[in-house]
Nucleic acid binder design. Structure first.
Lengths: 212, 212
DNA sequence: AGTATACCCGACTATTTGTACAGGTACAAT
DNA sequence: ATTGTACCTGTACAAATAGTCGGGTATACT
């Protein structure tokens, strides 16, 4: 019996979000009570309980300010949880190092915390066009350690990074990276390849699509 | 008398960062004490005081978990505070709407909070090539309300977004947006233009450069 | 009329969390 | 030799914060 979010619950969600944006950590019950313009923190308790039940937020028991917005919460607010942008990876022959820029110290204002598990890369090159990944596309990468044959992976080959399809077979060459473009050759595993993450989504002109 | 960060202070900084990544909010003194493997939380007090003095973190007095990592803190850890990636903007004729994607619900894992004040866009089009902004470049945009003549701005024109140089003169046409490419015409202000932010940096293949 | 739900009040208690005090050790610089 | 600093111990206490009890009102549905 999943309920739609009510107006009041949405308000509280917004209060939590805004507080977080402003301070860098979640609000207390008292602060939420204040913002909601109610007299008793029992109201906050009730509303939070609903938000938890319906999957909008997560609470850590017995902890001050133990609130986390879940993806559903962002969605209900109409805000998008977003991935950090990390740089540019080559999707063609592995020619271009992953450039995590070092010039951010000069960024103005307070800056966001972020998760390391997921990030966005821009692809250059045409080696994956048959998988629907074209030059200039953005891809969303989830870092993980274990992969299955057929996954499109973000890999480091020697000193360079690239995006290719990971293949594992029971015949030679057993393990290799496969470009999705007949122009290019498979890359065989020696000890020079490290898989960094799995490509889970691709963006073309701002539209994000699942990877097949 | 600015001191370099000590090894122990850096450890604590890392503990705070990691805890934040894991839970979405800062740790308590007790939790930090635990991680530092010390018996008294006075040690935490001392170390935090040093971190505040030297500008690595900010504390909110009289508040549980009132910790915020400052840019200097990220720098000391060797992590880069990064800007959220928002989508694609046209740098040519204003043909392409800013696409803030709506497909993130499926993102795995907990997601980062972020500041709204700064974000990254990808440029498509050639209307700003004389300002050093080319098709496919990324630009870093800081949202702000007030602009001076000559600023390169991220603007909404009718229902579309674009990046152009903002010009303000004491002669007609007074206010207009100027493409940095003779192929294109100035865009005059009617009531259809809203300036969203200022472009403060441009990235070419991962190298971030200041905007002139 | 009865039941359920969303939302609220007020007072109180329990627990978590930060702060203060009174030191101690090791080390480097003056 | 003395001073300062980084880091630590241990205890006690005050403040911040979450949780609980026992209700109330309005609205919608059966």
């Amino acid at each position: 019996m999943k309920k739609d979010i009510t107006e009041r619950q949405k308000q509280l969600l917004g209060i939590i979000y805004d507080y977080f944006q402003g301070s860098g950590y979640p609000p207390t019950f008292e602060e939420m009570r204040e913002e909601l313009k109610v007299a008793s923190n029992q109201s906050v308790v009730d509303l939070l309980k609903k938000l938890v039940e319906n999957g909008y937020i997560k609470r850590s028991e017995a902890a001050a300010r133990g609130l986390t917005l879940l993806p559903l919460g962002y969605e209900a607010l109409g805000r998008q949880p977003m991935a950090p942008f990390m740089g540019v990876a080559a999707g063609g022959p592995p020619i271009q190092a992953l450039a995590i820029t070092g010039e951010w110290q000069t960024l103005p204002g307070g800056l966001a915390k972020l998760k390391d598990e997921v990030f966005v890369l821009r692809i250059s090159g045409d080696s994956m066009i048959n998988a629907g990944i074209d030059d200039g596309d953005q891809v969303l990468v989830q870092t993980q350690k274990y992969f299955v044959s057929g996954d499109i992976v973000f890999a480091q080959v020697d000193d360079e990074t690239t995006v290719k399809r990971f293949m594992s077979t029971d015949q030679p060459p057993y393990l290799f990276l496969k470009p999705e473009n007949p122009k290019y050759q498979n890359i065989l595993f020696k000890d020079n390849i490290e898989l960094k993450g799995k490509v889970i989504s691709v963006s073309k002109s701002g539209q994000w699509l699942p990877i097949k």
